[in-house]
């Protein structure tokens, strides 16, 4: 279980560019939760995920993983428990290394790296079977450089790498937003399968309200660095896109005049 306890974060504090990015965030992520995260641009969705991942430390508040206080742990240390897939497919893999080398790097996530061989012969079988799962034929291309792959292939590989070693939480930061609709659909299905298969705890940022409703067991909406809506279970399943859009605009104190445009 991961908890955020009264986390606050200012960026550029004391300057004209001051941003109150996280405003008193309290969140319990329970084992097996699949949380979808929505909110307008600048609401603090990515900031929230980055805060959990340890890209920065909160100004105040506490973060725990399985009751262990990790508030002051740097990102690389938290990687033992947390894995991530980014929006940019280029960020998750190493282009000049082969598929096999990338998987081998991921296969030691959070473990000590010593002078043993980077790519071990005995892992070949494991890599091949995992890759075969993707159905992209990558299992025949272990020695190809990742730079040769398409964005979709790289993002699929990143999904695989993020889950080679089971994370306590998988953070997906709009991980399909940079892909064409067909590829995005495939990666989304892959995400659902992997999360289900391994019973992963995960958080997924999305701008697609339909995905936000149909994926996962819990939904949170952020606005101006606060969690303004948090639903789960039955209540979430009965949500409609209209409900969400209404919430969304209510939070901003705006009229719903744009509804039809937004929904079309």
């Amino acid at each position: 279980m991961i908890t955020l306890d009264a986390c606050q974060k200012y960026f550029h504090k004391g300057s004209v560019n001051e941003v109150f990015a996280l405003n008193n965030i309290n969140l319990q992520i329970k084992e097996g939760d699949f949380i979808t995260v929505i909110g307008s641009n600048g609401a603090g969705k990515s900031t929230l995920l980055n805060c959990i991942a340890g890209c920065f430390f909160p100004d105040t508040g506490k973060i725990t993983v399985n009751k262990k206080d990790v508030t002051r742990w740097p990102e690389y240390k938290r990687a033992r428990y947390i894995s991530r897939v980014f929006q940019d497919p280029l960020l998750g893999t190493c282009p000049s290394a082969t598929i096999e080398q990338n998987l081998a790097l991921a296969n030691r996530r959070g473990l000590r790296r010593g002078l043993g061989r980077g790519v071990k012969a005995k892992d070949g079988e494991l890599f091949r079977s995992r890759l075969a799962h993707l159905g992209l034929g990558l299992e025949e291309r272990l020695l190809d450089k990742v730079g040769l792959l398409s964005g979709g292939q790289r993002q699929a590989l990143t999904m695989l790498m993020a889950t080679m070693i089971r994370p306590e939480v998988l953070l997906l930061d709009e991980h399909i937003a940079a892909l064409d609709p067909k590829t995005a659909g495939k990666i989304l299905t892959l995400t659902r399968d992997i999360v289900k298969e391994q019973g992963l705890t995960s958080m997924m940022i999305t701008h697609n309200m339909k995905h936000a409703i149909s994926f996962g067991n819990r939904l949170i909406m952020l606005h101006q660095g606060r969690i303004i809506y948090d639903v789960r279970g039955e209540e979430k399943n009965t949500l409609t896109v209209e409900d969400l859009v209404r919430r969304f605009y209510e939070s901003q104190g705006e009229e719903l005049a744009m509804d039809s445009m937004l929904l079309s």
Partner: peptide, 22 residues
């Protein structure tokens, strides 16, 4: 070619990725 060396290669190539891999 070692685990450490591979991490070094990847550090020059994609620091964000290797950080998130610990």
């Amino acid at each position: 070619g070692t685990e450490l060396g591979q991490a070094m290669l990847a550090t020059g190539d994609n620091p964000q990725m290797v950080t998130s891999l610990g």
